[in-house]
């Protein structure tokens, strides 16, 4: 009896290891960065997949909110979409604060989302560079860390941005603001 029980116990971890109904990494869409910009009257959500190629693998979805963009992206553009490894959320300065707050509120309910992902504002040139070269994403992340070291009051991660909004402080708080006019620059931008 103990031998059979031991064999069963050894078998269970294999069964539970996830090899059954697994998702191959080639078919999974691991999203590394999401950018939000204004185009015409609506918002454009761009999902950048994790890739080893020089040119980014990006899919743009016009939507009214992050929630709708996720649904559309998963249904029409990127099946097997995963936000578990999302590291960077970029909002163009033109995006309305109301829409940004609604997105932040929605994301907080998503179990797979990492609260330590970075959130920053940016201009149109940064988003253009982001769509052209994959290395721009890692460059932005490096710059964001430098920015935080130089200016500790800047709210860099999603968690602190969410808390700053939730506390409804009468004063505005600082977030990272990225501009790209030839070379990339990061400064502290005010979030009202």
């Amino acid at each position: 009896m103990p031998k059979k029980l031991t064999a069963l116990l050894l078998l269970l971890p294999i069964v539970l290891s996830g090899c059954i109904a697994s998702r191959q990494i080639e078919s999974a869409a691991v999203i590394e960065t999401v950018s939000v910009s204004r185009q015409g009257g609506s918002q454009l959500y761009t999902f950048f997949r994790l890739t080893d190629s020089d040119s980014p693998d990006a899919v743009s979805v016009p939507a009214e909110s992050f929630e709708q963009a996720l649904q559309l992206a998963a249904a029409q553009y990127i099946p097997n979409l995963s936000l578990a490894k999302l590291e960077l959320l970029l909002y163009q300065t033109d995006v309305e604060r109301k829409a940004l707050r609604a997105d932040i509120d929605y994301i907080s309910t998503q179990a797979s989302f990492s609260p330590v992902a970075c959130l920053a504002l940016c201009d149109e040139n940064v988003l253009r560079r982001l769509r052209q070269k994959t290395e721009t994403q890692s460059l932005i992340k490096q710059q964001l860390i430098l920015c935080k070291n130089q200016n500790p009051t800047v709210q860099l991660d999603y968690l602190s941005v969410f808390n700053s909004f939730a506390r409804q402080s009468p004063n505005s708080f600082s977030v990272a603001f990225i501009t790209s006019d030839g070379e990339m620059k990061i400064s502290a931008g005010k979030m009202e």
Binding site: S108, T109, A111, S114, P115, V116, L159, F162, N163, A166, R167
Partner: peptide, 17 residues
């Protein structure tokens, strides 16, 4: 902070942050 209030299994959040 306030983010924990939106989460299920609040203590689990500490391992994520």
């Amino acid at each position: 902070g306030e983010y924990a209030g939106r989460q299920e299994y609040e203590t689990y959040l500490l391992s994520r942050v």
